[in-house]
Design a protein around this nucleic acid. Structure first.
Length: 413
RNA sequence: GUGGCUGUAGCUCAGUUGGUUAGAGCGAAGGAUUGUGGUUCCUUAGGCCGUGGGUUCGAUUCCCAUCAGCCACCCCA
């Protein structure tokens, strides 16, 4: 027996049953972001590996073990993008957008790739959408971005939304905080889990995310980043919170919220819901004031967020089906068949959904098919109809049927 | 990468304490109704019981491995 080829682990076919919902949501996202004056950017699915090494951070799991990387025939080190911010920043720098005007507001919607073990809400190819605002260091920009994310989910009626927000300060305060955190947890080093002992060396901020009971207790008494923020960072955070409150966006100030990627500074936030299993995050983002410069651009403040489309769709309580056909043309015989093709084409010019027969079924089967597809009308054309120049038009809901002259049938609909 | 659970028809699932031809519902195809759908009735098709190996006279059933799916850990959208 020939071996059949299957899709790759962690990837998924989106069949027509679901694809209508996907299309609807994608359009919804385009529309939502456009309302705020953000414009779409599309970047390639793969980039030079260096881009991700320099932006995401060498110590992160994404870079150290989850990237789909390869060397091509020209000896270039390439990688399928594991996220889109790096690509957007690369493009921003490359096209000198900062010189065109001071503020650039971009959104994106595209696939990302990470070689992780799949589970609920996590795939190896997944669609991310998100946005980036370049040029403003002001808290009102943070507030706008957070509002855009929150209102998207809110307007789609996602239940049990939790917006968590925190500030991780500037580079200096973060560095100082890291050292203090390391000091604190080192005192309990022998009690920590193996995982946390590793985190202690590599990224002590991660310990704050622990789910182990006794570590959660330790975290409660750990130093808080808020206490290490400098005056400007504090003011910035306060202003962001003020704007959110003013726009009626409920938030939870979570001093233990940290984000995985290296490039964040100051504001970080996450929107969660409880329908996604262990993957509670719908989206995550924050300010990254150093990244543009780190990647070789001008010193440019920026903030953005990334969200998972699969997770959004999973959290949705919505059923969008295919549009039902307006007309199903049942034809019997060769001359009727070619007549039906031309009739269908004319009707389609009126933006109607019109189906014709292409598999030589009996009248009865065609009627069954029309019924199954929920067509609202059926036009029946056979040799008799061609001779008499009259076709039968049946309303499938009422069952009512009448004869309509072929010359007037287009105006009938 | 680690762990747990699950793989039987297109779908949802039964079943075989190891023993001739593995079942149901839904769906599909055809018919009752030779040119009229939905309801009803009848008929039919569709299965290497995930794959490979082992034990056995005999394995879909027991054992091992493997692959896939789901879920969790790690990490993350």
């Amino acid at each position: 027996m020939k071996e059949t080829i299957q899709n790759i682990k962690g990837t998924k076919d989106i069949l027509p049953k679901e694809s209508y919902l996907w299309l609807y949501i994608e359009n919804y996202i385009h529309n939502h972001f456009s309302k705020f004056g953000y414009q779409e950017i599309r970047t390639p699915s793969f980039e030079k590996t260096d881009l991700f090494l320099r932006s995401i951070g060498q110590e992160t799991d994404i870079v150290s073990k989850e990237m789909y990387s390869w060397i091509d025939q020209g000896n270039n080190k390439l990688t399928l993008r594991p996220e889109l911010t790096a690509s957007v920043v690369r493009s921003y720098i490359q096209h000198q957008m900062g010189k065109q005007n001071k503020l650039h507001k971009l959104y994106y919607l595209g696939s990302s790739y990470r070689r992780e073990r799949p589970q609920k809400g996590r795939f190896r190819q997944f669609k991310q959408f998100g946005l980036e605002a370049f040029g403003s260091s002001l808290p009102e920009q943070d507030a706008e971005i957070i509002y855009m994310a929150y209102s998207l989910y809110k307007s789609l009626q996602i239940k049990n939304l939790r917006l968590k927000i925190n500030s991780i300060g500037n580079r200096n305060s973060r560095k100082q905080y890291k050292i203090e955190l390391q000091k604190y947890f080192t005192k309990f080093k022998n009690e920590l889990t193996e995982a946390s002992q590793k985190r202690l060396k590599i990224n002590p901020l991660r310990i704050l995310d622990t789910k182990v009971d006794f570590e959660v207790e330790l975290v409660k008494n750990a130093p808080k980043i808020i206490d290490y923020l400098d005056l400007d960072d504090q003011k910035h955070l306060e202003s962001v919170l003020y704007f959110l409150k003013d726009m009626n966006v409920p938030y939870i100030l979570d001093p233990y919220l940290v984000r995985g990627l290296d490039y964040y500074s100051r504001t970080v936030f996450e929107i969660q819901t409880n329908t996604l299993g262990a993957q509670s995050a719908l989206c995550g983002g924050g300010r990254y004031d150093y990244l543009v410069k780190d990647l070789g651009g001008q010193d440019t403040p920026a903030i953005g967020f990334a969200a998972g489309l699969e997770r959004l769709i999973m959290a949705l309580d919505m059923d969008i089906g295919n549009k039902n056909p307006d007309i199903y043309i049942v034809s019997i015989g060769d001359s009727a068949l070619s007549y039906s093709f031309n009739l269908a084409n004319s009707l389609r010019e009126k933006d109607l959904i019109v189906l014709t027969e292409t598999i030589g079924r009996s009248l009865k089967s065609q009627m069954k098919d029309a019924n199954r597809l929920n067509a609202s009308h059926v036009i029946i054309i056979g040799d008799d109809e061609i001779k008499s120049q009259m076709a039968s038009v049946k309303n499938m809901t009422t069952g009512h049927q009448e004869d309509v002259s072929l010359s007037k049938i287009i105006d009938y609909f």
